[in-house]
Structure formats: structure tokens, C-alpha cells
């Protein structure tokens, strides 16, 4: 899998200057290379996903990008600002939700939000944000009485209360039930609708497919792929494939001899044929001509998850369960 240079650039039409620019970022801890060489660029108003297995360097890259860590090499610009040199300005325009953060148990939801709201010059409305995040009824509740999902949503709310121009969200839907997860996705689409750029770290492929305009797949501290989710999924497929149950034994050379067919495999009683072009028609017509019916025909439905597995050799869901 090669990443063409054009794909590193954000779509030019989406904005004048990139909202996030990371070039040749490198960060080591002693002998451990957490981030080897990461470059990507996010256009204003784009939702950009960072995917990768655990320990790939996603979180370190994000922490460098927002100025929490000093990179060993590389440059980072957030709307043209250096996250460490222009720290004050950056904190005003970048909202961050980090992984695994808690809050004092004996403060109420409203009290926490009012406190964080006071940090910003032009903050959003607490009531409105709680409404959107489905926490409207929880304003007077103590933090410790919130469920895991509610705490997570409050954490996202704190990242958004300053009305940031860039929102950085690290594993924002981890621990949420499917309903809460979908609600949060709608919220993210909503804030993008207001022109906010979103940088999203996730291990949920469904989330990346649903939300992200483009994703960078990071493995061992490097960007191994960077493209739209659909395009990555298509690349992972390596052509099309069709799986079927033949009604009778047939001469396999009939199919492997076809120009559209690259490979033929057996999966138990089923046959899987991989190839290009008008693969399905060619296979079914050829079989029919030989008096064989293809039953239980299934077309390949590879997705971002297949791309992930193919590019990293790991299963994102299992990684997620361990996290």
C-alpha cells in the first residue's frame, strides 16, 4: 500500500489554509520510538480521523499536536500557530478531550461546566450544550453519580464549551452504549456544520466510516495509509470477490481461465473467486454454460475494518476491548 503524495495534502477546496498541519513529527521516550515520522494536514471544517492499533503512537502524536508534549523533531501548526510558542492563543481556539480523565466526584455537572466556561473569552451556552449532549436533566447531579457514558459526554462538553475552532477528541465514544455513541456522532456532525475542524482519534471503524472525511492509519509511529474511508476500503479489497455454492462439481479451469478471474479458493463447500471487471457476470454465465448453478451468491463487502486488518495485521475490535 503506497500513500501518494497528493493524499497527504488536504483537499484544497475545503479551506484556504489548513487547520492542522503536522510535518515529520517524531517523538521518542528513551529508546522507545513512539512517533517515528508522522505527517498529515487537515483542512478547516474537515473531520479527520486517526486510526491505529494500541501503541501505534496515536495518542502521543495528538499530545504533541496540542502542545502537551514537546516533539523531538517536526513542525506543528494549528491555524498557523505553534502549539507551544503560541500556547495562550492555541488554548483559546483548540478544545481538547483526552482519554481517561475524571473530575471531582462532589461537584455538580452545571458547576463544572460553569467553571470551565469562565476560562474562555467567547464561550458557548451551558444549557444548550447539555441539551445537545443529552445531559440536560443532569445539570444538578454530582459527577460521581453519572454513568460512564454520561461522564464521557461531559468530558466532550468541556472540550466544546469554549466554542473552539478545532476540536481534538481522543476516543470520545469509548465506553458509550450504541445509542449514546450515535448521539455523539450527530453532535460532532453538528459542530462541523458550524465550521469546526475535528481531529478524532478512534479505534471504532464504524465511527471513522460514518464521521471522517479522511483518515490516517498509523502503525508503529508511521502513517501507513491516508485517504477517505471508502477509498481505503476499496484498496484493501484488492479487487472484487464473489462467494457461492456450486450446484455440482465443475472444472475449475473454466473460471481461472477467464480474464476477469485472478484467484479461486475453496471455503468448505463454497468457492470464492477474486478478480476484476465484470467478475460476477462472467463467473455466473460461465458456470451456467457448463450446466452449474451458483447458489447463495455473496458479493464481497469489505470495509474500513478490512483495510485496518490488512494494513496493520491486527483486529481493531480486539484492540479496543483491551484498551
Amino acid at each position: 500500500m503506497t500513500t501518494s503524495l497528493e493524499r497527504l495534502e488536504a483537499p484544497a477546496a475545503a479551506g484556504v489554509r489548513p487547520a492542522v498541519e503536522v510535518a515529520h513529527l517524531r517523538k521518542t521516550y528513551g529508546t522507545l520510538v513512539a512517533v517515528d515520522d508522522v505527517s498529515f494536514s487537515v483542512a478547516e471544517g474537515e473531520i479527520f480521523g486517526i486510526l491505529g492499533p494500541n501503541g501505534a503512537g496515536k495518542t502521543t502524536a495528538i499530545e504533541c499536536a496540542i502542545g502537551l508534549r514537546q516533539p523531538d523533531a517536526g513542525t506543528i501548526r494549528l491555524l498557523g500557530l505553534d502549539p507551544r510558542a503560541d500556547r495562550d492563543k492555541v488554548h483559546e481556539i483548540v478544545g481538547v478531550q483526552l482519554q481517561a480523565g475524571a473530575l471531582p466526584g462532589k461537584l455538580r455537572v452545571g458547576e463544572i461546566l460553569e467553571e470551565y466556561r469562565s476560562f474562555y473569552r467567547d464561550p458557548g451556552d451551558v444549557g444548550e450544550l447539555l441539551e445537545v449532549l443529552g445531559l440536560a436533566g443532569k445539570r444538578g447531579d454530582f459527577y460521581r453519580s453519572l454513568s460512564g457514558g454520561q461522564r464521557q459526554r461531559l468530558s466532550v462538553a468541556l472540550a466544546l464549551i469554549g466554542r473552539p475552532r478545532i476540536a481534538v477528541l481522543d476516543e470520545m465514544t469509548t465506553g458509550l452504549d450504541p445509542k449514546a455513541r450515535r448521539d455523539t456522532w450527530e453532535l460532532i456532525e453538528g459542530i462541523r456544520g458550524r465550521g469546526v475542524t475535528v481531529l478524532l482519534v478512534t479505534h471504532f471503524m464504524e465511527e471513522a466510516e460514518r464521521l471522517c472525511d479522511r483518515v490516517a492509519l498509523i502503525d508503529s509511529g508511521r502513517v501507513v495509509a491516508l485517504d477517505t474511508p471508502a477509498s481505503l476500503a476499496a484498496q484493501a479489497r484488492g479487487g472484487k470477490s464473489v462467494r457461492f455454492l456450486p450446484s455440482a462439481p465443475f472444472d475449475e479451469d473454466l473460471l481461472t481461465g477467464l480474464p476477469q478471474v485472478a484467484r479461486l479458493e475453496h471455503q468448505g463447500q463454497h468457492v470464492v473467486v477474486t478478480g476484476t471487471g465484470e467478475l460476477v457476470n462472467a463467473v455466473i454465465l460461465t458456470l451456467a454454460a457448463a450446466g452449474v448453478t451458483a447458489r447463495d451468491v455473496q458479493l464481497d463487502s469489505s470495509n474500513l475494518e478490512d483495510a485496518f486488518v490488512k494494513l496493520t495485521g491486527r483486529n481493531p475490535d480486539k484492540e479496543g476491548a483491551l484498551a
Binding site: 483548540v94 478544545g95 473530575l103 470551565y116 476560562f119
Partner: peptide, 13 residues
Amino acid sequence: ELGILRRLSTTPV
């Protein structure tokens, strides 16, 4: 321990 100091270092305060 709760990461509150860390969270604050991403805000203007």
C-alpha cells in the same frame, strides 16, 4: 491522579 491538571493544561487557564 484524575488527570484534572492535565485537562487544565489544554485550556487557557
